[in-house]
Amino acid sequence: MISTKNINFSYGQGTAFSFPDIATSRGESLLITGGSGKGKTTLLHLLGGLQRPQNGDIIIEDTNIVTLSEKQLDHFRGKNIGLVLQQSYFIASLDVLENVVLASWLATGKQAGDKARQLLEQLDLKEHLHKLPSQLSIGQQQRVSIARALINEPKLLLADEPTSSLDDENAFKVADMLGHLAKQFGTALVIVTHDQRLKDRFPNQISL
Protein backbone atom coordinates (compact mmCIF):
# COMPACT_ATOMS: atom_id res chain seq x y z
CA MET A 1 0.00 0.00 0.00
CA ILE A 2 1.03 3.60 -0.42
CA SER A 3 0.18 6.84 1.33
CA THR A 4 1.56 10.35 1.08
CA LYS A 5 1.47 13.32 3.37
CA ASN A 6 1.94 16.98 2.44
CA ILE A 7 4.35 16.52 -0.39
CA ASN A 8 5.77 19.58 -2.10
CA PHE A 9 8.06 19.88 -5.02
CA SER A 10 9.47 22.76 -7.01
CA TYR A 11 11.59 23.04 -10.15
CA GLY A 12 13.40 26.13 -8.91
CA GLN A 13 11.59 29.41 -9.36
CA GLY A 14 8.00 29.67 -10.43
CA THR A 15 6.88 26.12 -10.76
CA ALA A 16 6.01 24.75 -7.38
CA PHE A 17 3.65 21.91 -6.79
CA SER A 18 1.75 20.99 -3.72
CA PHE A 19 0.13 17.62 -4.03
CA PRO A 20 -2.97 16.31 -2.31
CA ASP A 21 -2.45 13.38 0.02
CA ILE A 22 -3.22 10.07 -1.53
CA ALA A 23 -3.64 6.58 -0.19
CA THR A 24 -4.14 3.30 -1.99
CA SER A 25 -4.13 -0.15 -0.50
CA ARG A 26 -3.14 -3.50 -1.96
CA GLY A 27 -5.10 -4.63 -4.96
CA GLU A 28 -6.72 -1.24 -5.36
CA SER A 29 -6.36 1.25 -8.17
CA LEU A 30 -6.12 5.00 -8.22
CA LEU A 31 -6.38 7.16 -11.28
CA ILE A 32 -4.71 10.57 -11.12
CA THR A 33 -5.87 12.91 -13.84
CA GLY A 34 -5.13 16.47 -14.75
CA GLY A 35 -4.13 18.64 -17.68
CA SER A 36 -0.60 19.29 -18.87
CA GLY A 37 1.64 21.17 -16.47
CA LYS A 38 -0.22 20.14 -13.38
CA GLY A 39 2.60 17.93 -12.25
CA LYS A 40 1.20 14.51 -13.01
CA THR A 41 4.51 13.04 -14.11
CA THR A 42 6.30 14.83 -11.29
CA LEU A 43 4.01 13.21 -8.75
CA LEU A 44 4.56 9.83 -10.34
CA HIS A 45 8.34 10.29 -10.20
CA LEU A 46 8.06 11.30 -6.58
CA LEU A 47 6.00 8.23 -5.79
CA GLY A 48 8.47 6.07 -7.68
CA GLY A 49 11.46 7.48 -5.85
CA LEU A 50 12.94 8.88 -9.02
CA GLN A 51 12.84 12.30 -7.48
CA ARG A 52 12.77 13.58 -3.93
CA PRO A 53 10.11 15.94 -2.59
CA GLN A 54 11.07 19.20 -0.90
CA ASN A 55 9.16 18.00 2.10
CA GLY A 56 6.47 15.57 3.08
CA ASP A 57 6.42 11.79 3.49
CA ILE A 58 5.88 9.00 1.01
CA ILE A 59 5.23 5.75 2.79
CA ILE A 60 5.23 2.51 0.88
CA GLU A 61 4.57 -0.58 3.00
CA ASP A 62 5.91 0.98 6.20
CA THR A 63 8.96 2.48 4.56
CA ASN A 64 9.26 6.22 4.22
CA ILE A 65 11.20 6.39 0.98
CA VAL A 66 12.08 10.04 1.50
CA THR A 67 14.51 9.03 4.22
CA LEU A 68 16.36 6.40 2.18
CA SER A 69 19.85 6.97 0.80
CA GLU A 70 20.38 6.97 -2.95
CA LYS A 71 21.62 3.41 -2.97
CA GLN A 72 18.92 2.14 -0.62
CA LEU A 73 16.37 3.88 -2.75
CA ASP A 74 17.67 2.19 -5.93
CA HIS A 75 17.38 -1.13 -4.20
CA PHE A 76 13.95 -0.39 -2.73
CA ARG A 77 12.65 0.82 -6.06
CA GLY A 78 13.84 -2.25 -7.87
CA LYS A 79 12.20 -4.54 -5.36
CA ASN A 80 8.97 -2.78 -4.48
CA ILE A 81 8.00 -0.44 -7.26
CA GLY A 82 7.05 -1.32 -10.80
CA LEU A 83 6.96 1.42 -13.39
CA VAL A 84 5.19 1.49 -16.70
CA LEU A 85 6.04 4.55 -18.70
CA GLN A 86 4.30 6.33 -21.49
CA GLN A 87 6.99 5.29 -23.88
CA SER A 88 8.63 1.95 -23.42
CA TYR A 89 12.37 1.77 -23.07
CA PHE A 90 14.39 -1.36 -23.25
CA ILE A 91 17.96 -2.48 -23.35
CA ALA A 92 18.03 -2.55 -27.11
CA SER A 93 20.61 -5.29 -27.35
CA LEU A 94 18.72 -7.74 -25.12
CA ASP A 95 15.70 -9.70 -26.29
CA VAL A 96 12.25 -9.45 -24.71
CA LEU A 97 12.74 -12.25 -22.23
CA GLU A 98 16.19 -11.03 -21.21
CA ASN A 99 14.84 -7.55 -20.61
CA VAL A 100 12.25 -8.88 -18.20
CA VAL A 101 14.70 -11.24 -16.51
CA LEU A 102 17.15 -8.37 -16.12
CA ALA A 103 14.62 -6.51 -13.99
CA SER A 104 14.38 -9.46 -11.64
CA TRP A 105 18.15 -9.75 -11.44
CA LEU A 106 18.66 -6.07 -10.72
CA ALA A 107 16.14 -6.20 -7.87
CA THR A 108 16.86 -9.54 -6.27
CA GLY A 109 20.14 -10.80 -7.72
CA LYS A 110 18.32 -13.85 -9.08
CA GLN A 111 17.23 -14.44 -12.63
CA ALA A 112 13.56 -15.37 -12.60
CA GLY A 113 13.47 -16.91 -16.06
CA ASP A 114 10.46 -19.16 -15.61
CA LYS A 115 8.38 -16.51 -13.96
CA ALA A 116 9.22 -14.04 -16.72
CA ARG A 117 8.22 -16.55 -19.36
CA GLN A 118 4.94 -17.24 -17.57
CA LEU A 119 4.16 -13.56 -17.21
CA LEU A 120 4.92 -12.84 -20.84
CA GLU A 121 2.74 -15.73 -21.92
CA GLN A 122 -0.07 -14.36 -19.81
CA LEU A 123 0.37 -11.06 -21.63
CA ASP A 124 0.06 -12.81 -24.95
CA LEU A 125 3.71 -12.45 -25.91
CA LYS A 126 4.63 -16.11 -26.15
CA GLU A 127 5.83 -15.90 -29.74
CA HIS A 128 7.94 -12.84 -29.09
CA LEU A 129 10.15 -14.01 -26.24
CA HIS A 130 13.32 -14.00 -28.27
CA LYS A 131 12.70 -10.98 -30.45
CA LEU A 132 14.44 -7.69 -29.88
CA PRO A 133 12.11 -5.07 -28.36
CA SER A 134 12.52 -2.89 -31.46
CA GLN A 135 10.90 -5.63 -33.54
CA LEU A 136 7.63 -5.39 -31.60
CA SER A 137 4.70 -3.05 -32.12
CA ILE A 138 4.07 -0.21 -29.67
CA GLY A 139 1.21 -2.14 -28.03
CA GLN A 140 3.38 -5.22 -27.63
CA GLN A 141 6.20 -3.14 -26.23
CA GLN A 142 3.82 -1.67 -23.69
CA ARG A 143 2.85 -5.16 -22.57
CA VAL A 144 6.48 -6.16 -22.24
CA SER A 145 7.06 -3.19 -19.98
CA ILE A 146 4.08 -4.23 -17.89
CA ALA A 147 5.56 -7.68 -17.54
CA ARG A 148 8.84 -6.13 -16.56
CA ALA A 149 7.15 -3.87 -14.00
CA LEU A 150 5.43 -6.85 -12.40
CA ILE A 151 8.22 -9.43 -12.46
CA ASN A 152 9.26 -8.67 -8.89
CA GLU A 153 5.68 -8.59 -7.60
CA PRO A 154 6.04 -5.00 -6.46
CA LYS A 155 4.00 -3.43 -3.68
CA LEU A 156 3.28 -0.50 -5.92
CA LEU A 157 2.72 -0.35 -9.66
CA LEU A 158 3.01 3.08 -11.22
CA ALA A 159 1.85 3.78 -14.75
CA ASP A 160 2.52 7.04 -16.58
CA GLU A 161 0.14 7.57 -19.49
CA PRO A 162 0.20 3.84 -20.23
CA THR A 163 -2.48 4.11 -22.92
CA SER A 164 -2.00 7.49 -24.52
CA SER A 165 -0.11 6.20 -27.53
CA LEU A 166 -2.45 3.26 -28.11
CA ASP A 167 -5.64 2.92 -30.16
CA ASP A 168 -8.95 2.26 -28.41
CA GLU A 169 -8.76 -1.49 -28.61
CA ASN A 170 -5.25 -1.70 -27.25
CA ALA A 171 -5.88 1.02 -24.69
CA PHE A 172 -8.72 -0.93 -23.11
CA LYS A 173 -6.78 -4.13 -23.32
CA VAL A 174 -3.87 -2.57 -21.44
CA ALA A 175 -6.16 -0.91 -18.90
CA ASP A 176 -7.89 -4.20 -18.21
CA MET A 177 -4.61 -5.99 -17.89
CA LEU A 178 -3.23 -3.47 -15.43
CA GLY A 179 -6.33 -3.62 -13.26
CA HIS A 180 -6.47 -7.38 -13.42
CA LEU A 181 -2.79 -7.94 -12.71
CA ALA A 182 -2.81 -5.46 -9.83
CA LYS A 183 -5.50 -7.57 -8.20
CA GLN A 184 -3.72 -10.80 -9.03
CA PHE A 185 -0.44 -9.68 -7.46
CA GLY A 186 -2.03 -7.68 -4.65
CA THR A 187 -0.35 -4.55 -5.87
CA ALA A 188 -1.46 -0.98 -5.33
CA LEU A 189 -1.88 0.55 -8.78
CA VAL A 190 -1.49 4.27 -9.45
CA ILE A 191 -2.07 5.56 -12.96
CA VAL A 192 -1.49 9.12 -14.03
CA THR A 193 -3.14 10.06 -17.28
CA HIS A 194 -5.07 12.61 -19.21
CA ASP A 195 -6.65 9.84 -21.24
CA GLN A 196 -10.41 10.24 -20.90
CA ARG A 197 -10.99 6.65 -21.99
CA LEU A 198 -9.68 5.34 -18.69
CA LYS A 199 -11.98 7.38 -16.48
CA ASP A 200 -14.81 4.90 -16.70
CA ARG A 201 -12.61 1.97 -15.86
CA PHE A 202 -11.14 3.16 -12.58
CA PRO A 203 -13.61 4.47 -10.04
CA ASN A 204 -11.01 5.86 -7.60
CA GLN A 205 -9.89 9.15 -9.05
CA ILE A 206 -8.02 12.26 -7.99
CA SER A 207 -7.78 15.32 -10.14
CA LEU A 208 -4.81 17.64 -9.81
Binding site: K71, D74, F90, I91, L102, L106, A107
Partner: peptide
Protein backbone atom coordinates in the same frame (compact mmCIF):
# COMPACT_ATOMS: atom_id res chain seq x y z
CA UNK B 1 22.59 9.99 -26.11
CA UNK B 2 20.47 7.08 -27.28
CA UNK B 3 21.32 5.07 -24.27
CA UNK B 4 20.44 7.51 -21.55
CA UNK B 5 16.93 6.06 -21.56
CA UNK B 6 18.41 2.63 -21.17
CA UNK B 7 20.41 3.87 -18.24
CA UNK B 8 17.38 5.58 -16.71
CA UNK B 9 15.45 2.40 -17.16
CA UNK B 10 18.12 0.34 -15.46
CA UNK B 11 17.99 2.73 -12.55
CA UNK B 12 14.20 2.48 -12.42
CA UNK B 13 14.56 -1.26 -12.27
CA UNK B 14 16.83 -1.00 -9.30
CA UNK B 15 20.30 -0.68 -10.77
CA UNK B 16 22.61 1.48 -8.70
CA UNK B 17 24.73 4.31 -10.06
CA UNK B 18 27.82 2.19 -9.62
CA UNK B 19 26.32 -0.57 -11.72
Amino acid sequence: KDRKYEFALLRVNGASRLQ
